[in-house]
Design a protein around this nucleic acid. Structure first.
Length: 336
DNA sequence: GACTCGTGGAA
DNA sequence: TTTCCAAGAGT
């Protein structure tokens, strides 16, 4: 068993040295902080999507010192369009804890890392192995796919994650941990791809229990995604936009959106506009299909409204300093 | 353990 | 076109 696991891990890290994706932006100037930011951004998000967000983020906040006094709003602003906005709020909360409890030194132990909001077992493993070169396993979607195929683990079974964590732990080597961790993710992302794995190029195909097998597509039970209608009123005047900070525990929490009609009573906080028009479109979230209606009102000048919802007239040039959902940002940029 | 939480790449 | 799902974590 010992020898077999050695062959697995050494095959992976040897492969990495030849074929790894070493040009990714988070694989240059590696620090615990940079690994942390990249790992959070990469949660459930494809590499290609993350790259521009990561570069923008690191340009503004290149290190822990630079981000230590940042507001949650500044961090959310850099997250606009990336999705899963809780991650940005968690980065803010985590760096506050690092400042307060760790004297602004990034933690380097597993227990300390997983105590930070947004860092779970796999992200902690990635930070420990990539930034600190400590031998810890990860289990992201790539590793899950590589190992489940290699050892023929049925991922549709309820407790398959437990077995996969055991195997990931078993294969994780003590030496070359950096190259191994990066390597197994790269194998999963490039060679052991979802639909058409190229087993001929795989470093562990000799021991893989499903190498060169046909990938059968498993149809999951298709359950209807719930639909929800939401109605916004977007007031603007002289290139300023009246936006409200969402405080619901639902989606887009803490992001800035137009006035949301609750539909209970017909709110009359908007006076008669100079012009008005309407946009209707669908927008898919991960768990909801939104049908969005935005009424757009133009006014001669900004006006005060009476509401206890947090709100602000925000200049077009200042919008970039606020966190907005993608479709709202799009409307303001392209249709007003 | 099942939901919630965004957006877009890829086929 | 629709469908799947991505460097997961929190509740």
């Amino acid at each position: 068993m010992e020898a077999a696991t050695n062959i697995f891990s050494s095959s992976i890290y040897s492969w990495y040295e030849k074929h790894g994706r070493k040009d990714l932006p988070w694989r240059k100037n590696i620090t615990p902080y940079s690994v942390w930011i990249s790992e959070i951004m990469l949660q459930q998000t494809q590499v290609k999507t993350v790259i521009p967000f990561y570069e923008r983020f690191m340009k503004k906040f290149p290190d822990l010192n630079a981000i230590s006094d940042a507001s949650e709003e500044e961090i959310l602003a850099l997250w606009t369009g990336l999705g899963f906005y809780r991650r940005a709020k968690n980065i803010f909360a985590a760096k506050e804890i690092v400042k307060k409890n760790f004297d602004n030194n990034f933690p380097s132990t597993f227990d300390e890392l997983v105590s930070l909001p947004g860092i779970g077992k796999s992200t902690a493993g990635a930070i420990l192995s990539i930034a600190y070169k400590k031998s810890f396993p990860i289990l992201d979607a790539n590793v899950k796919r590589v190992i489940s195929r290699h050892d023929k683990v049925d991922v549709s079974e309820k407790k398959s994650d437990n077995k996969l964590w055991q195997l990931s732990d078993l294969y994780t080597p003590n030496k070359k941990i950096f190259e191994y961790t990066q390597g197994i993710m790269d194998v999963g992302a490039t060679v052991c791809s979802i639909k058409k794995p190229t087993c001929i190029e795989c470093p562990v195909s000799k021991t893989c229990k499903t190498a060169f097998e046909e990938i059968k597509v498993i149809r999951k039970s298709k359950k209807e995604k719930p639909q929800r209608e939401i109605f916004f009123k977007l007031a603007h005047s002289n290139n300023k936009f009246l936006l409200f900070k969402k405080n619901s525990k639902s989606f887009w929490e803490s992001l800035w959106v137009p006035y949301e009609d609750e539909g209970i009573k017909n709110d009359k906080i908007f006076k008669k506009p100079l012009k008005r028009n309407q946009q209707k479109f669908n927008h898919a979230l991960s768990h909801l299909d939104l049908m969005i209606t935005i009424e757009i009102f133009e006014y001669k000048k900004p006006f005060k409204i009476s509401t206890n919802r947090e709100h602000q007239w925000i200049c077009r040039d200042e919008i970039k300093n606020y966190g907005l959902p993608k479709p709202i940002k799009h409307i303001i940029d392209n249709h007003v």
